[in-house]
Lab assay of single mutants.
Amino acid sequence: SEIVKHAEEALERGEFVRIEHNGRVIEIRNEEALEELRRWVEK
């Protein structure tokens, strides 16, 4: 997914991403959060 790709690229640069999706906000700061995002987006 485009969202996950964006988050992965930001993590590689040492940045973090805040994503709003279906009214929820998730902050991607590490691999664990990235995995959570993947599960969340796939639903």
Rank of each mutant, 00 (worst) to 15 (best):
I3C: 11
V41R: 03
L34P: 00
H6R: 15
R39A: 13
K5Y: 04
E8Y: 10
E9F: 06
I26D: 00
E36S: 08
E35G: 07
V17F: 12
H21I: 15
E20T: 12
F16K: 06
W40P: 00
E2V: 10
E27R: 04
G14V: 02
R13L: 05
R18L: 11
F16H: 09
K43R: 13
L34S: 00
I19R: 00
R18F: 10
R39E: 08
R39T: 08
V4L: 15
N30R: 02
V41M: 11
H6C: 14
L37N: 00
I3R: 04
E32Q: 11
I28H: 00
S1I: 12
W40G: 02
R18D: 03
I3Y: 06
F16I: 13
H6P: 02
L34N: 00
S1C: 15
K43P: 05
E12N: 14
W40A: 05
L37K: 00
E35R: 09
I19D: 00
E31G: 09
E2A: 12
H6I: 15
V25N: 04
S1F: 14
N22W: 13
R29I: 14
E2T: 10
N30D: 14
E12R: 15
F16G: 05
K43H: 12
F16R: 06
V41I: 13
V41W: 09
G14D: 04
R13A: 05
V17H: 05
L34Q: 00
V17G: 03
E15G: 10
L34V: 06
V17C: 13
V4N: 01
G14H: 06
E31Y: 15
E9V: 07
E31S: 12
E12Y: 13
R18P: 01
A10Q: 06
E2R: 09
A33S: 13
E42F: 12
G23W: 02
W40T: 03
H21C: 15
E20S: 09
L11S: 01
A10I: 05
G23Y: 04
R18Y: 09
R24D: 05
E2K: 09
I26F: 15
G23C: 07
R38V: 05
G23N: 06
L37R: 00
K5N: 05
N22K: 11
L37T: 00
E32N: 08
R29H: 11
L34K: 00
R38M: 06
R13S: 05
I19W: 10
K43M: 14
N22C: 14
L37A: 02
R18V: 15
I26L: 11
V4S: 02
L11P: 01
L11I: 07
R29P: 04
A7E: 01
E9N: 09
E20K: 09
E2Q: 13
A10M: 10
R38Q: 04
L34Y: 01
E35V: 07
I3G: 03
R38W: 03
F16T: 10
R38A: 04
V25K: 04
R24C: 12
R18A: 09
N30T: 12
A33Q: 14
E15Y: 08
E12D: 09
L11Q: 02
L34E: 01
A10E: 02
A10G: 05
R29D: 10
H6M: 15
A10K: 06
N30Q: 02
V4D: 01
V41H: 04
R38I: 07
N30G: 07
E32W: 11
L37S: 00
N30K: 02
L37M: 03
S1H: 13
E27G: 02
I28A: 01
E9S: 09
E8S: 12
E32S: 09
E31P: 11
I19L: 07
S1L: 13
E31D: 08
I19N: 00
E15I: 11
G14K: 05
I3V: 10
R29G: 07
R24L: 12
G23T: 01
V25L: 08
I19P: 00
N30C: 09
E9Y: 08
L11H: 03
A7G: 02
I3W: 12
E32K: 10
E12W: 13
G23V: 00
E15P: 01
I26G: 00
L11N: 01
K5E: 04
W40I: 06
W40D: 02
E20H: 11
I26R: 02
N22T: 04
V17I: 14
K5I: 06
V41P: 01
E12F: 13
I3P: 03
I3F: 07
G14I: 01
E8V: 10
E12H: 14
L11F: 10
L11R: 02
H21D: 03
E42H: 08
R18N: 06
L34H: 00
E36C: 12
I19Q: 01
E20Y: 15
E9C: 11
A33R: 05
A7D: 01
R13W: 02
H6S: 10
K43T: 11
I19H: 02
K43V: 11
W40V: 05
V25A: 05
G14C: 11
A7R: 01
E31A: 15
I26T: 04
I26P: 00
L11G: 01
E9K: 11
E2N: 12
E31H: 14
E27D: 10
R38S: 03
E32H: 09
A10R: 06
A7Q: 01
I28R: 00
R39I: 11
I28V: 11
N22H: 13
R38F: 03
K5R: 13
E12T: 12
E27A: 07
V25W: 12
R13K: 08
E32F: 09
E35K: 08
H6A: 14
A33E: 14
I28Y: 01
R39L: 11
R18I: 15
E2H: 10
N30W: 05
V41F: 13
G23S: 03
E27L: 12
E27V: 13
E9W: 08
E32M: 09
I19S: 01
R18Q: 08
A10S: 07
V25S: 05
N30F: 04
A10F: 06
E32C: 10
E8P: 01
E31I: 14
E8C: 12
E2L: 13
S1E: 11
W40S: 03
E27H: 10
A33V: 05
